[in-house]
Amino acid sequence: MMLSSYPLWWLALPALLLPVWWHRQKRQRLKAEMLATARFLPSAPPEQLRVWQWRDKLLLLVRCLMLAALIAWLAATIFPWRGDTVLVDAGVDKAWAEKEIAAAGFSAAARAELPPNALQWLRANERDWRADAKLLIVARASQIAMPARLPQYNHQLTLRTHHAIASSPTASAAAPAERQVVLAAPDARSAAWRALFAAFSSAGEGVARYATAVEPDAKTALIVWDTPDTAPPANWRAPHWWITTPAAFPELANATPLTINGITLKYAHSPRGRLWTSDAFPPRDASTARSLYEAWQLLDAAPAPAYPAPSQTFTAARSALPAIVKAQPASWLALALLTLFMIERILAHARRN
């Protein structure tokens, strides 16, 4: 099975129309012989006529096949072109980065910006580097997460990470995470909801800060829908919804019940996000609000932070094949292309004679 290393070459398939157009433009002149009485006739330009013979159609087919084989060969063949390269994190300390690059012997190497998920990206695109190329990653420690399994590459990879030192205890303290909440409720109930999320922000030693908004965007973590007899706009999306009127959401008809910390919740999945409803929305006393907060912390737990990767060197493991291992140079396509070219030259010579 042949896979494409560079599938964008297949976009050149419309070029197969070029041989057809070229053949349609070919014209063959009729042979004209001068007669003795021709001097009494007005001069006329020689006529041209399209003549399609069996060898013309065969020649057209061979040229189309040759062009298709060329595109397939380019799409399936790997052309390593990169040499020694340094992937530099844009936010790393410049002086430290230059020192590490010089110490590693990569002063003359090409430089590129560090992509997101650099180790995974390098694994998927390693085929672009020549066999003798070496790579260096210079980045902040927070930008390179230590993988669960030590990766293997076909090229030697040197990783240099920089741990920023906080200048003061206040600088090292992590800022509270901001959770944006879209509040859709009448004025009579908005005050209770705002007071609830203000209490959420001060609870848990300020781990998270809840800010209310009018309409959702990419940062929205929760939508509170407390508008009776009204359905939300179709384009509203959020990871979680708190709903006080389940009738507006048909998905909640088959909701799954769940009891956490004395709070009974029902939830259902939908294209809008995960829908939650409960008789405790909104809480009517401080005890219910505290129980709701503790239950929500269990349901909406933040992901564990990634462990930063230390500086290290990954030796070249030639047995570690790249991610696109099944893509071969397709030598048989090169032989087919050569054969088609020879047939095309023979047919073209026969056509002229």
Results as ranks from 00 to 15, higher is better:
331 S>K: 12
333 L>P: 07
159 L>R: 03
7 P>A: 04
225 W>C: 04
323 A>E: 08
45 P>H: 07
235 N>R: 13
269 H>R: 07
202 S>V: 12
247 A>W: 04
172 S>P: 05
20 V>P: 00
235 N>A: 15
6 Y>S: 14
223 I>A: 08
211 A>N: 09
301 A>H: 03
146 M>T: 13
37 T>P: 02
181 V>I: 15
85 T>S: 10
305 P>C: 04
340 L>C: 11
5 S>L: 14
166 A>C: 09
64 C>N: 11
139 A>P: 11
101 I>M: 05
43 S>M: 08
11 L>K: 02
169 P>A: 06
301 A>N: 05
320 A>Y: 11
226 D>K: 00
169 P>K: 05
196 L>S: 00
173 A>S: 12
97 A>Y: 07
55 R>S: 10
178 E>S: 14
7 P>M: 10
353 N>I: 09
181 V>D: 06
153 Y>G: 05
201 S>T: 13
27 R>A: 13
200 F>I: 02
10 W>G: 01
86 V>L: 01
43 S>C: 06
326 K>F: 15
326 K>G: 15
193 W>V: 00
339 T>D: 06
311 S>D: 04
87 L>E: 06
321 L>F: 14
305 P>K: 05
317 A>W: 12
60 L>A: 12
214 V>N: 09
121 W>G: 10
58 L>V: 10
288 T>H: 02
158 T>N: 05
334 A>D: 07
216 P>T: 06
175 A>C: 03
276 W>S: 00
294 E>K: 06
326 K>L: 15
14 P>H: 01
133 A>F: 10
297 Q>D: 12
144 I>W: 09
227 T>E: 13
256 T>E: 00
307 Y>F: 10
146 M>R: 14
165 I>S: 15
74 L>T: 06
58 L>K: 03
191 A>M: 00
190 S>I: 00
311 S>Y: 02
8 L>F: 09
143 Q>W: 08
187 D>H: 03
8 L>D: 08
223 I>E: 03
216 P>E: 07
344 E>F: 05
160 R>D: 03
22 W>M: 14
214 V>S: 13
38 A>Q: 11
84 D>H: 11
36 A>M: 06
261 N>E: 13
335 L>S: 14
279 D>M: 00
353 N>Q: 14
330 A>T: 13
196 L>D: 00
199 A>Y: 00
64 C>P: 03
84 D>M: 11
19 P>W: 05
115 P>M: 12
328 Q>M: 13
350 A>G: 07
205 E>I: 07
43 S>I: 10
277 T>W: 00
37 T>E: 15
199 A>Q: 04
323 A>Q: 08
21 W>I: 11
82 R>N: 04
210 Y>L: 03
294 E>D: 14
347 L>I: 02
156 Q>W: 04
152 Q>S: 13
254 N>F: 00
91 G>Y: 04
156 Q>G: 12
166 A>E: 07
191 A>K: 00
15 A>N: 01
24 R>T: 06
154 N>R: 15
223 I>W: 05
47 E>W: 09
72 A>H: 11
215 E>Q: 14
231 A>Q: 14
316 A>V: 11
249 F>Q: 05
320 A>K: 04
249 F>M: 11
160 R>E: 08
8 L>C: 02
122 L>Y: 06
326 K>D: 15
161 T>N: 11
286 A>Y: 00
8 L>R: 09
137 I>C: 03
273 G>M: 10
27 R>W: 09
109 A>K: 06
165 I>M: 15
182 V>W: 01
